[in-house]
């Protein structure tokens, strides 16, 4: 067994008791071995610190989203009061709402939209922020994907980015931000119109907003081809 093998087993936590004895002995007697061990051990600590920084920036992102969500819930409370008043004056159009399992409907229809716009190849060593954003998206590191999309300079922004950022927010179940961005895709008439309408319908279902969901589904069926059949099925279940 070479010294390199011993180091390898040490760092992959796979030293046998016998190898550990040799390892300890070498650390005491072989200066070169000790130097290499210290170098790799320092690298381990450096990588841990790097990973901690990455996690810290994710946590800061969660915190930002949480504050934004609280603001959304605060506004939503006023809407809830208005809706309650509407019910009190005798509007019971929402009767069927209590008979529908909205979470199940959402879960059975939601699938994450694949990356169809940016090709990540193994041989591509270019480290553009967009590439990093899509790598994070594909590996479901949604908070990193959002941070990377945000970091892309305005001059390099592409029309499809809002859609994928909205997808990343959906992945984090941050429906307020996802809805805002899908709506932006529709308002700016960017690509993914049908897709955004579909996801807006799903968000409305998740929020138990039956009327809104129906509006989006009807719009999707009459104007787009994307998920048209699924939209018809969903509409039937809601009606």
């Amino acid at each position: 067994m070479t010294n390199q093998d011993l180091l390898y087993h040490y760092f992959s936590n796979s030293l046998t008791a016998e190898q550990e004895v040799v390892f300890r002995k070498l650390l005491e007697t072989d200066a070169e071995f000790k130097a290499e061990f210290e170098y790799e051990n320092n690298l381990k600590k450096a990588i841990k610190s790097h990973e901690s920084d990455v996690m810290k920036s994710k946590l800061k992102g969660f915190e930002r989203n949480l504050n934004a969500k609280k603001l959304f819930i605060f506004n939503y409370k006023y809407l809830a009061v208005a809706a309650t008043l509407a019910l009190l004056i005798g509007w019971f159009g929402y009767n069927s709402i209590f008979g529908t399992n909205y979470s199940n409907l959402y879960a059975s229809n939601f699938t994450e939209y694949p990356n169809t716009v940016y090709t990540i190849t193994r041989s591509d060593d270019s480290n553009t922020i967009e590439r990093e954003a899509f790598i994070a998206y594909e590996t479901r590191n949604y908070q990193i994907a959002i941070d990377k999309f945000d970091a892309i300079p305005e001059t390099s922004q592409k029309s499809y980015m809002s859609f994928y950022k909205a997808q990343a927010y959906l992945g984090l179940e941050d429906f307020g931000n996802a809805r805002r961005l899908f709506q932006q895709v529709l308002d700016e008439n960017n690509e993914f119109q049908g897709e955004s309408t579909w996801y807006l319908a799903l968000i409305a279902i998740k929020s138990k907003d039956k009327d809104q969901a129906i509006t989006y589904l009807e719009k999707l069926i009459s104007n787009h081809f994307y998920n048209k059949d699924k939209a018809k099925e969903l509409l039937e279940k809601l009606n």
Partner: peptide, 20 residues
């Protein structure tokens, strides 16, 4: 740490899997 973060994504991932 400074130079690790300048490595390509593949190297960073590989060394992270191994050492971290």
């Amino acid at each position: 740490k400074k130079h690790f973060s300048t490595l390509g994504k593949k190297c960073q991932e590989l060394l992270t899997l191994f050492y971290y």
